[in-house]
Design a binder for these strands. Structure first.
Lengths: 214, 214
DNA sequence: GTCTATATGAGGATAGAC
DNA sequence: GTCTATCCTCATATAGAC
């Protein structure tokens, strides 16, 4: 348990401490953020449906009833994680692309940063990519919209690189999906066992070769 | 509903018809196989925990009680899908590697066939990769063992290609994971919207470039 | 905002007749 | 092997006191 005035999460330095800051400015009470962080840990570890409201409450030494002062339902909790997670992910992607105006460095930066993001925020990333279909229809819509943007951003870099003759790409759609797969699948296997930046660097090299002439 | 003597599944030609044959020689009754196929469709669509035994029974026009003549529990059903799915996946991988004795063609075949396998059997593949941690400890063990084999097979081809000077690989472990990611992530996004063989062919080209000199 | 207590229903699994 | 009926647990969510 955290004590009053102590807003650190056990295991500071890991991804939960990182994502904590995402909600730092939110109007929600600190206790709300603890509920959120506990949910992230559990949803990522067991999955949304396998996590009960009791699991979350127990982890915080709280009653289930108390949780409902912060969130109206378990699904609303998933929505908060999922939407914010998606938004932060595209933010990272866009920042990487904006770091240059040439397709080559853009592709390298994009894969490097997006891969590192998935390693660094692997718990949220797992929820973002594998639990989203547990959202209600209304909550799913804005999330899917962000996902379309994500793929479009990657495809755009590829298409511009191909048009400029920098890249050799026979199929933008398939290559774009493959690049996204590379980054996203990190959320499936990553367990803190590799340095996010080194991993991103290595994947950026792979990506550049994927679009280089045979 | 299927009628007596009719062992086809609605939507023949899709992956459910394909996997049906995996259990053709099993000592189980045809009705057992229908329970299994319905479970595959539902586990893949909604996830294991979101699927109820009533969902499965309803889909077959059967009572929940009747299902228990075929499987002792929902988890046993998951285990059957998951273990057989894993076995068939390595089978495909090993066959691809055995198609040549040179690392270059082996890598191409491996990525081509493993990618195509994931597209062709996307429902089972989704369960194999995303629902396995819902297995009981006892059932999880043999499955994890197969997964280690899978990665080892890929890494071995990479290592031999690197040793022979055919490939330029700075990091076998990271590149091996990236190659597996490429194939596996197909299970996440694929919805029958691309030709499995063409997709595999394209991915094989990407893979070869990933290990080619910069 | 947190507690205890509880309403309400869903879900996995079994019993026993046919 | 299938049905109907049912057991029993557990899960989400709410009510009302402090």
């Amino acid at each position: 348990m955290t004590t009053a005035g102590d807003d650190r999460w056990p295991g500071a330095g890991d991804d939960l401490q990182l994502v904590h800051d995402w909600w730092a400015d939110s109007p929600r009470a600190p206790a709300s953020q603890q509920v959120l962080l506990a949910s992230i840990a559990l949803f990522a570890e067991r999955g949304y449906h396998a996590t009960t409201t009791r699991d979350i409450a127990t982890r915080l030494g709280m009653s289930t009833g108390a949780m409902y002062a912060h969130y109206r339902s378990k699904e609303e909790l998933l929505f908060d994680v999922c939407l914010t997670g998606h938004q932060r992910a595209v933010d990272a992607l866009q920042a990487a692309i904006a770091s240059s105006d040439r397709p080559g460095p853009q592709l390298a930066a994009l894969v490097r940063e997006f891969t590192a993001w998935h390693a660094r925020h692997h718990r949220v990333a797992r929820i973002v990519h594998y639990e989203l279909y547990s959202l209600s229809g209304e909550h799913l819509t804005p999330v899917l919209e962000i996902r379309r943007t994500t793929q479009a951003l990657i495809d755009d870099v590829l298409a511009r690189g191909a048009a400029a003759g920098t890249f050799t790409v026979t199929d933008v759609a398939r290559t774009g999906r493959a690049l996204l797969s590379l980054c996203v699948d990190v959320a499936r296997w990553y367990r803190g066992d590799d340095d996010p930046d080194e991993l991103g660097e290595h994947y950026a090299g792979l990506a550049l070769r994927m679009v280089s002439g045979g």
